[in-house]
Simulated scan of single mutants.
Amino acid sequence: MGTAGERAAGGAHGGDGGGAALIDAALGFVFPAALRAAALARVADHLSEGPRTPAEVAAATDTDPAALTRVLRLLATRGLFGEDEQGRFRLEAAGQALRSDVPGSVRDGILMITDRTFWLPAGRMDHCLSTGGSVFEDIFAKPFFDHFAQDAETAAVFHDGMAAMSGVENGPIADAYDFPRTGTVVDVGGGQGGFLAAVLRASPGLNGVLYDRAHVVAGHRLGDDAALADRWSTAEGDFFTDVPRGDILLLKRILHDWQDEQCVRLLRACRRSLAPGGRVLVVDAVIAPDNRPHQAKDLDLLMMASLVGRERTHEDFRALLAEAGLRLTRVCSTPTVLSVVEARAADEAPETGGS
């Protein structure tokens, strides 16, 4: 087939035009497959102290040396690893977050995104085009979250993965929004509590409530931070029917999981529990009305294949909020792929300067 450079050169000189680039794009799925294999074997952990031969790493990871060499060779083309003249591989700066033992590790996030619950449905996206719906239930016999409820191992992959993805974004998002100095913030569907912890650290005058299903709340990590002592509590329930009362109600990476009608039910529950003058903060990706690359567009297709939800535009959020009795007041960008969509009660007098 030739190297990528050879194919690109052939196309540039009148060969197959853009065909070579499309073939390279079609082969793109091999990289995350190799990335997953390396993450599962904890290869980065075993290279953290310096270069080692594939045989040495294979002995430490119970893998095949020849196969490991081939995986490392591909990942080295992406700058995650490097190879010296003696055939030893080293961990590069770009691969540090693949380690499991460093702050900002995304290993669990990679394992979640490449898990079969996302991988297999994505491979059958043609089904989505034919039916307009998710293919997840055809493969796993149950809807996404029902499948997790019966499979504790897969559920742990999901929740640990979400915590890893959130770990690198929670602080920047909490710092990007001007939270009030006092009051109660409720993290609705807050998982293990990483975002709530970041908000409470950024705003020392706030108290927080972590709200989710009982089996999810049971795995919270709020108690690990002495700076949050006596400033948080947990609550269990179904956010489609009831939400604890608060001045700030957070919905981070929640609405994109659900169809519009389900989102409206959830937002109405939030509206009923919103204290006077309070705000609902939807923290999600906002798709811009242009064709520039954005992670939201990739996530949107994962949602289409595996769940029932979608990523949304500014106007999509405005319409959802209005139907739930809320008024979009502004959209705050953050240093991450997510934005903070702020809403207040629709019958509350608007503040000057709102959008």
Results as ranks from 00 to 15, higher is better:
residue 281 L to M: 11
residue 297 K to T: 15
residue 49 E to Q: 14
residue 284 D to S: 13
residue 102 V to E: 15
residue 158 F to G: 00
residue 24 D to L: 11
residue 341 V to T: 10
residue 21 A to N: 11
residue 225 D to G: 01
residue 106 V to T: 11
residue 181 R to W: 00
residue 114 T to Y: 07
residue 96 Q to C: 06
residue 227 A to G: 09
residue 125 M to N: 05
residue 336 T to G: 03
residue 163 A to E: 11
residue 194 G to H: 00
residue 153 E to I: 13
residue 327 R to H: 12
residue 1 M to L: 12
residue 18 G to I: 08
residue 154 T to K: 09
residue 344 R to V: 12
residue 121 P to W: 04
residue 318 R to A: 11
residue 202 A to D: 10
residue 301 L to H: 06
residue 186 V to L: 09
residue 284 D to T: 15
residue 85 E to F: 01
residue 354 G to E: 08
residue 282 V to L: 07
residue 184 T to A: 00
residue 133 G to E: 14
residue 345 A to P: 03
residue 101 D to L: 15
residue 93 A to G: 00
residue 114 T to K: 03
residue 175 D to G: 05
residue 20 A to W: 07
residue 283 V to N: 06
residue 195 F to E: 01
residue 187 D to N: 02
residue 140 F to Y: 14
residue 328 L to S: 01
residue 16 D to A: 15
residue 220 H to D: 11
residue 266 L to I: 09
residue 69 T to P: 00
residue 83 E to G: 01
residue 69 T to N: 12
residue 323 E to A: 15
residue 293 P to C: 10
residue 235 A to P: 03
residue 334 T to P: 00
residue 116 R to S: 15
residue 237 G to R: 03
residue 83 E to A: 06
residue 9 A to S: 13
residue 43 V to E: 12
residue 339 S to N: 12
residue 192 Q to A: 12
residue 132 G to S: 05
residue 104 G to C: 09
residue 198 A to N: 06
residue 261 E to W: 02
residue 148 F to S: 01
residue 34 A to H: 12
residue 67 A to R: 01
residue 124 R to Y: 14
residue 85 E to D: 14
residue 178 D to V: 02
residue 85 E to Y: 04
residue 290 D to K: 00
